[in-house]
Design a protein around this nucleic acid. Sequence first.
DNA 1: GATTATATGTCAATGTATTTACATAAAACA
DNA 2: TGTTTTATGTAAATACATTGACATATAATC
Lengths: 177, 177
Amino acid sequence: MNSYRNMAAFMSPSTEQNMGTARLEMSNRIFFRLYQCANMLHKTGSRAVQEEGLTTQQWAIMGALSRPKSASGMAVIELSQYLMVTRQNLSAVLKRMESAGHVVIQPDERDRRSRIIQITPMGREIWENKALPKIRAYYEEALDEFSLGDMTHILHYMIKLLENMKKIDARSGVQDE
Amino acid sequence: MNSYRNMAAFMSPSTEQNMGTARLEMSNRIFFRLYQCANMLHKTGSRAVQEEGLTTQQWAIMGALSRPKSASGMAVIELSQYLMVTRQNLSAVLKRMESAGHVVIQPDERDRRSRIIQITPMGREIWENKALPKIRAYYEEALDEFSLGDMTHILHYMIKLLENMKKIDARSGVQDE
DNA sequence: GATTATATGTCAATGTATTTACATAAAACA
DNA sequence: TGTTTTATGTAAATACATTGACATATAATC
């Protein structure tokens, strides 16, 4: 794919501003690819667990709730911060998962504003015995020809990018409290 | 953030399957971060261009249409393949952009099934004079402390990941034709 | 030339993402 | 102790993502 074309996906060529041209072109390509990766993860990742009645978002939630440290459940606000989605979005997704029988939503005994989310036995069964094997197969295909070194590097850069985005979020938005 | 906890975000610890444990843990962390990066790009990127009445999706579209090679417009199917979104999704987004006066949608003279999308003078004005300076500022913040070498590496890995996801898409889905 | 297969765009249903708003509860402050 | 500020979850509106379905147009095949 023409690198010039890729560069222009997010913006057209322009006179140099604060960023040098090379740096600007590279920035643009990075965010364009991140945008495409996100769409492709949604499309192909959801297909991988479609037969289990799951989506990529629900797989993230079930993964979080299945950890040993989450055995006693997680508060909605904890889970929303952990996943980096708004509590309004998470609330709606959890309602659907509750209707499907995958999780239970219970009042928090220590704070009446709060709700505690736990995976149900049925949810755990579906997660561990049906979804996880397919997720592993998906990872193998998606990370084909990635060495452990490659994986270490991409993860490092994603964490670094994420730290910067968190800072932008903190400065620009109404902070989720 | 506890790496063990990150690993479990997408799945709980498990006995080794086809993937070694180290590789599986790393896979999980990569996709979890990709998922978070996507959400944060959506949230912080949309805020960056909110005053222009744009979203990250529209910024991708306007970037694509602003390239010199797209001066005569792009067909819907071309644009959907370029952005890696479905033509059904793109159709709806373009309708809103047409209503906002940012693009025009015209019949393709050579193929009556096809529609050609072009950015309007008003759209180009908003894009070049209002959105682009904010997008550059966003890139500077988001890629703070990334060297050109870092940027080259993360881009390389994202392209590689994207190639793998395209292969999964080709094998598993009904191919968009 | 007629028929079949494929391509293209739109519609509808559904899930997921944000923001703003509101109600209730807890924390902080005077 | 009372008041103010902040926290938490849900509701509503809107934008964007998918899939399946359908109508029309073009390409391929016979």
